[in-house]
């Protein structure tokens, strides 16, 4: 019995690897070898930027599964990020267990939270769903801020950092990002991917085709929440300090996560990593300017408007527009589903 099954899954794995293509392995290999080969190029600051980029990639990819592929735009993903961070932090703070366990455990706590949020918010559609998620993330922030006995409130939680150098964090977050990419890619390649996109395209029609839309929207949310929380837990162990205003932030987490996905390319696989890189670089650029202050947020807003108008599929989805002046015009723009999955 097991042999034919094993053959089928081996075949499926081969198909998946073929579809995955070389780009993923090249990027991972380059990043993995960078410290070995090009160590002289790197200092702590550069490491920090790459680590943040990879962390934001995870967050963007997590959001993109729910918001991009399944079409359920969330304005409250900080709820899951913060929950992951606080799961790790509280393990150390309350129980004296290593905060590293938060990477997995935080994910599961976020899935449980996702069950509650999904139960409440998936009764609503479109903008109403988005607003409900926004409100719930704000509620989480206020609870974390005021429930001082449990969360230490606005004083936050401080955890001793495990490593004094950046290098271990670099490899850990690279692994997490690679795993996130592979899992999301595999989910979209499976029948789940078809169901998710069908729900995005037309929920009623999907329901009439026999897809239990409520169940699959929740499933998409669980995957999304898990990886978002994993990034949050990583933030905890990497930064060593969290407080409610940082990890449950509306603009610094929820909105920037959406921007990472939108700037890079909604419903593309490489969009969130590219978006994360662009956002981190722009953020750092503005930090360098002495007169800018927090004006980078203004610039992010302008960037978002420009992207929505001129590149609605993001940098990855609309690459042909970016380099269009170098080439002959392309006759037909591929849609988000077919762009990377013909």
């Amino acid at each position: 019995m097991s042999e034919p099954n094993a053959a089928v899954s081996a075949n499926k794995l081969m198909d998946f690897l073929k579809e995955l293509g070389p780009a993923f392995w090249i990027v991972v290999a380059v990043l993995a070898l960078l410290p070995v080969v090009g160590g002289f190029l790197l200092n702590d600051y550069i490491y920090h930027l790459i680590i943040l980029t990879l962390m934001w990639s995870i967050m963007g990819m997590a959001w993109n599964l729910l918001g991009g592929f399944t079409g359920q735009v969330s304005f409250g993903h900080a709820a899951f990020f913060g929950t992951g961070a606080y799961t790790g932090g509280l393990l150390a703070f309350k129980l004296g267990i290593s905060a590293w366990y938060g990477l997995l455990l935080g994910g599961f706590v976020a899935v449980a939270l996702g069950a509650v949020i999904g139960w409440i918010c998936f009764r609503l559609r479109g903008p109403y769903f988005a607003l409900a998620t926004l409100a719930l993330a704000e509620i989480m922030r206020l609870v974390a801020n005021n429930w001082v006995d449990f969360t230490n409130g606005p004083m936050g939680i401080q955890v001793q950092r495990t490593f004094t150098t950046k290098l271990p964090y670099y490899y850990i977050v690279l692994t997490l990002a690679a795993v996130t990419y592979l899992v999301i890619r595999a989910v979209i390649a499976s029948k789940l991917g078809y169901y998710f996109v069908a729900i995005r395209e037309d929920q009623d029609a999907a329901e009439a085709m026999g897809i239990p839309t409520a169940r699959y929207k929740r499933l998409s949310l669980y995957f999304s929440a898990f990886f978002m929380a994993m990034a949050g837990a990583f933030y905890m162990v990497y930064m060593g300090y969290i407080d409610p205003h940082v990890v449950y932030a509306l603009h610094d987490i929820s909105i920037i996560t959406i921007m990472v996905a939108m700037v890079g390319g909604v419903a593309t696989f490489w969009g969130p990593p590219v978006g994360a890189l662009i956002m981190i670089l722009i953020g750092e650029l503005f930090r360098r300017l002495p007169w800018a202050g927090t004006a980078h947020l203004t610039f992010f807003g302008i960037l978002l408007i420009v992207i929505i108008i001129y590149m609605p599929n993001g940098v990855v989805g609309d690459t042909h527009k970016l380099f269009g002046f170098l080439r002959r015009p392309v006759s037909r723009a591929p849609g988000p589903m077919t762009a990377e999955k013909p």
């Binding site: 395209e201 037309d202 009439a208």
Partner: peptide, 12 residues
């Protein structure tokens, strides 16, 4: 059900 206004999955 063949719904009103087709209701296709247009990006598929």
């Amino acid at each position: 059900h063949v719904p009103e206004a087709r209701r296709l999955f247009s990006d598929m």
